[in-house]
């Protein structure tokens, strides 16, 4: 199986000197294409930090990241056009939904497709389909502020999946959803890994959600351990 993601010796230190927080310490991780990975860990253990580093939002303090065989970050240097790479390869569902407040639910999804070079009409159609699939099609024309937390989360998932990314990173995507909807969302992620061969890394608190995952990792004080 081809390797989608390889993280080696990754460390992240926030701040300096006495205030320094070692959020990640020497993390190694390898995810294959089509693999469904769960990341568990107590609050403050560095789960979000790890996802941010992988998605190139945060610069790691040390370590290497490679994706799809391409070195992304090494020797303290990012070697790709970060935004372009992210746009073309990574879908991210944030822990706190980051929808653009002046765009409707549909436009929040469609913009990702347009940024990837899609035509406006086609983008809108595809966005509607995705929202429909996640059960928020009826709120497509509402602003994020008028949606419930769960609805916003589903729009955010639709946005992350819109341009068929090869790597999906989801930071507690089910936190704002009831169990049933949470299962639906997880099912979406499962499908995207099975059907499209995307690597999916999901952070979750909820142990019940991890059934059917290919691998489970636990983070503790910035250190990664394998196993359920």
């Amino acid at each position: 199986m081809t390797e989608a993601l390889r993280v080696s010796g990754l460390s992240k230190v926030y701040g300096e000197g006495a205030l320094a927080v070692h959020a990640l310490a020497d993390v190694d991780l390898s995810v294959a294409a089509g693999e469904l990975v769960a990341l568990l860990g107590p609050s403050g253990s560095g789960k979000s930090t790890l996802l941010f580093c992988i998605s190139l939002i945060l610069e790691p303090t040390a370590g290497k990241i490679a994706m799809f065989g391409e070195p992304i970050h090494g020797g303290g240097r990012t070697v790709v056009d970060v935004r372009r790479f992210r746009r073309e390869n990574i879908g991210f569902v944030f822990q706190h939904q980051n929808l653009i407040p002046f765009l409707s639910a549909r436009d929040n999804v469609a913009i990702v497709l347009e940024l990837a070079g899609g035509r406006a009409r086609a983008a809108r159609h595809r966005a509607l389909d995705l929202l429909e699939e996640l059960g928020v099609g009826h709120r497509a024309h509402d602003l994020p502020a008028n949606l419930s937390g769960g609805e916003q989360q589903r729009v955010a998932i639709a946005r992350a999946l819109a341009n068929s990314p090869r790597l999906v990173l989801a930071d507690e995507p089910t936190a704002a959803l009831d169990t049933e909807r949470g299962q639906v969302a997880m099912e979406m992620l499962r499908r995207i890994s099975r059907e499209r061969g995307a690597a999916v890394v999901t952070v979750t608190h909820d142990e019940r959600m991890i059934s059917g995952f290919d691998s489970v990792y636990r983070l503790h004080d910035g250190r990664l351990r394998s196993g359920a």
Binding site: R83, R86, R87, I100, F102, L115, A116
Partner: peptide
Amino acid sequence: EKIRSIATLKLIGAPNRI
């Protein structure tokens, strides 16, 4: 007022041109 939205645009990969 829109700085957060602008940061989000960057997160979803919008180029500076946009």
